[in-house]
Design a protein around this nucleic acid. Structure first.
Length: 493
RNA sequence: GGCGUCUUGGCCGAGUGGCUAGGCAAAGGUCUGCAAAACCUUGUACAGCGGUUCGAAUCCGCUAGACGCCUCCA
């Protein structure tokens, strides 16, 4: 029996603001689409947080033995910097500034994106399609929308007719906006001439002569509208209706709203059952922005080379920090927060690394089965990683108590404890074990064992000057000795 | 201006009508030659003001503040 039959999860659905029981369209199979990055500059931490949230969701669904197809796109077609009918797209702009081809920009930052995600120990998605690889599919969708009467052509461009759509459907269903309000509140944009109404959005844009990224279409040489690629790729790989669509909160409107409209206008069906939105990452209480200097690159966290942090942090520490907040909460990235998480992370790892050396007893003083289910309950409740982590700390406490002799565990329970804590910590949360290791069998361990024995002799002889010298100098070298009831162990790092 | 979200103990951060979140920091204790680590104990928090209720941090209203979206953005 697959695990998902005994562990039922609830997902907060942005569509109705409720936690709902998750029931995939096809039992046992899950289709999940997440809006990926536009590759025109280095990934920033906010992107990382969003994708991390869905990495966890992907990992957990897989752990529950669902067959998951996870599609996360790369937006490599440039889109305009604003919604006016003129202006440069961001990739082209970057290309011009650096005097390179747009596709060089795309390549450079796609590689950067993958590198950073690898460093953070992300699982690759099942399919990672690109927008430029699906121009034909996008054109086909536009044709359909035109045929269905929800789009109009003007001067080689094609626009989605929001008012027309709203007559039979509801534009704003996801973001809870009313079209009337949008009309009243849309700012007048200069140079806007082609659209019938300001809230209409482009499906196809005719390219200006200097525009490099362009493709032929029935309407003009041009490029697709930003919202269209996700509709094209999600439909192609997951079908007209699929289970989960995710992205950052800031994409809810207009991007996801437009995706729904496009899909409905094409297939007359709601495309997605569960919409999920990851909340924003801010820094020191404010939005991250390059322009104000309130900004940090992922690599700077690993190197410590940024004025907002006081030291370098392991990727797993940054990951742990982010997972200590729920994905639907705004998270404030601060040095103090990182520092606190780092200590907690090492505490958890130290306990996990102790497990192999625990003594078992004929009875268990802790209910491991119950604890294990609490770990599942946390994740089943809309992927509540902070609560899961709290439970993992309880597990760490059990381990330490057993080591101290203030708790006991049977061999069977210890196996369950081990498999549960490592599965959740490494497979589901995607953390990596620290460099710290308890005594192993390598040369370093042998050498440290010799020093530990020398120190022991010195202590027996009450030569505390020598014993403390050994302890302190090892500490300086990054090796910490821990005196316990059953002798001395050590950790590195 | 419109729409929406949020405001929890020293800090971070869960929860949500009555029952300990957790981490970090702090205090006391056990252990130790001394430390460190670990373990035990300690905090009685939920922006303010009203209302609903037997009971609210949790529901409703108002006020204040923060943030997001409304224009590219994860």
């Amino acid at each position: 029996m697959p695990l998902y039959e005994s562990q039922s999860i609830k997902i907060y659905n942005s569509l109705n603001g409720e936690k709902q029981d998750f029931e995939p369209i096809i039992p046992g199979y899950v289709g999940m689409y997440v809006c990926g990055p536009t590759v025109y500059s280095n990934v920033h931490l906010g992107n990382v947080r969003t994708f991390m949230s869905f990495d966890i969701i992907y990992r957990y669904l897989k752990h529950l033995e669902y067959k998951v197809r996870y599609v996360r796109n790369i937006t490599d077609a440039g889109h305009l910097e604003n919604d006016a009918d003129e202006g440069e797209d961001r990739i082209a702009k970057k290309a011009r500034l650096e005097a390179i081809e747009p596709m060089e920009v795309v390549q450079r930052y796609t590689v950067d994106f993958h590198n950073i995600l690898n460093t953070f120990n992300f699982l690759p998605p099942s399919i990672e399609p690109t927008a430029t690889g699906h121009i034909i599919e996008q054109i086909e969708i536009i044709k359909n929308i035109i045929d269905n009467g929800f789009a109009y052509k003007v001067n080689g461009s094609v626009y989605f007719d929001v008012l027309k759509y709203n007559e039979s459907k509801s534009y704003g269903i996801l973001s809870k906006r009313k079209v009337e309000d949008l009309i009243h509140n849309t700012r007048a944009l200069d140079g806007q001439s082609d659209k019938k109404n300001p809230q209409d959005f482009a499906l196809w844009k005719k390219a200006e002569p200097q525009h490099i990224m362009r493709w032929p279409s029935p309407w003009s040489d041009g490029f697709p509208g930003w919202h269209l690629e996700c509709t094209a790729m999600s439909t192609k790989y997951l079908g007209e209706q699929f289970d989960i669509h995710g992205g950052g909160m800031d994409l809810k409107f207009p991007h996801h709203e437009c995706e729904i409209a496009q899909a409905e206008a094409t297939n007359d069906k709601a495309p997605v059952n569960y919409w999920m939105h990851a909340n924003m990452l801010i820094m020191n209480g404010k939005k991250m922005a390059k322009s104000t200097g309130n900004y940090i690159l992922p690599n700077e966290i690993f190197s410590g080379d940024n004025p907002h942090i006081t030291k370098a942090y392991l990727p797993s520490v940054a990951r742990f920090f982010m997972l200590q907040a729920h994905y639907r909460s705004i998270l404030d990235f601060t040095n103090n927060g990182l520092l606190a998480s780092e200590k907690g992370y090492f505490r958890l790892m130290d306990a996990i690394n102790l497990m192999d050396n625990l003594k078992t007893s004929s009875t268990s003083s802790v209910d491991i089965q119950n604890w294990r289910q609490k770990c599942y309950d946390a994740m089943n409740d809309d992927f509540n990683t902070p609560v899961l982590i709290a439970n993992l700390f309880d597990g760490a406490k059990f381990i330490n108590q057993i080591k101290d002799g203030s708790a006991t565990i049977t061999h069977e329970d210890l196996d369950l404890l081990k498999s549960t804590i490592t599965t959740f910590t490494f497979d589901i949360l995607g953390l990596k074990n620290s460099d710290k290791e308890v005594v192993g069998s390598d040369k370093l361990s042998s050498a440290v064992e010799i020093l530990i024995n020398l120190r022991k002799e010195a202590r027996v002889n009450k030569d505390f000057a020598l014993s403390d010298k050994i302890r302190d100098e090892l500490a300086e070298a990054g090796i910490q000795l821990q005196d316990g009831k059953d002798g001395t162990t050590f950790t590195t790092n």
